[in-house]
Amino acid sequence: MSTVQPVHPTNKVKLAVFWLYVMVPLAWGVYNTLAQAMKLFQ
């Protein structure tokens, strides 16, 4: 009979740092894109 070994729990601090590393530049890019687009409609 095969037993599945549980995967090691994810380090929540590393996961949070990773998402910040991804989301901060993404949010900055979206903000700048929207700010530049608003100039076109004024």
Score class of each variant (00 low, 15 high):
32 N>M: 04
19 W>R: 09
41 F>W: 12
20 L>M: 12
7 V>A: 15
16 A>G: 10
18 F>R: 15
28 W>R: 07
30 V>N: 01
15 L>R: 14
22 V>A: 10
8 H>F: 03
23 M>C: 13
6 P>I: 01
9 P>E: 04
29 G>V: 07
12 K>H: 14
18 F>S: 11
24 V>D: 04
6 P>H: 03
27 A>G: 08
33 T>D: 02
14 K>R: 14
33 T>A: 14
39 K>R: 12
15 L>E: 14
29 G>S: 08
13 V>C: 04
17 V>G: 02
26 L>W: 07
5 Q>C: 02
20 L>P: 01
11 N>G: 02
33 T>S: 08
41 F>N: 11
20 L>V: 05
6 P>K: 04
34 L>V: 15
30 V>W: 02
40 L>C: 04
19 W>P: 01
29 G>W: 08
16 A>M: 13
27 A>F: 06
42 Q>P: 02
11 N>S: 09
6 P>V: 03
34 L>C: 15
13 V>W: 09
40 L>T: 03
25 P>G: 01
14 K>Y: 12
35 A>H: 10
23 M>F: 15
32 N>R: 13
27 A>M: 06
33 T>I: 13
19 W>D: 02
15 L>F: 13
28 W>A: 15
21 Y>E: 04
21 Y>F: 13
15 L>K: 11
9 P>H: 02
22 V>E: 06
3 T>S: 09
25 P>S: 03
25 P>M: 04
36 Q>F: 06
29 G>T: 06
17 V>S: 06
16 A>K: 09
18 F>K: 15
5 Q>K: 12
36 Q>S: 13
39 K>C: 00
27 A>S: 13
35 A>I: 03
12 K>M: 07
41 F>H: 07
42 Q>F: 10
17 V>C: 06
17 V>I: 14
31 Y>K: 07
22 V>G: 00
15 L>V: 09
30 V>L: 07
34 L>D: 00
14 K>V: 14
22 V>K: 13
35 A>Y: 08
41 F>T: 10
42 Q>E: 14
27 A>I: 03
30 V>R: 01
12 K>C: 03
24 V>R: 02
4 V>D: 07
24 V>P: 01
38 M>F: 07
31 Y>S: 09
3 T>N: 08
12 K>D: 03
40 L>Q: 11
6 P>E: 07
40 L>E: 00
9 P>Q: 02
20 L>G: 11
27 A>V: 05
40 L>R: 05
5 Q>N: 09
33 T>P: 01
9 P>M: 02
10 T>K: 13
17 V>M: 06
28 W>M: 11
1 M>T: 06
16 A>Y: 10
22 V>S: 04
12 K>N: 09
7 V>F: 06
2 S>M: 14
18 F>M: 11
39 K>Q: 12
19 W>I: 11
39 K>W: 05
26 L>C: 08
10 T>G: 05
33 T>G: 08
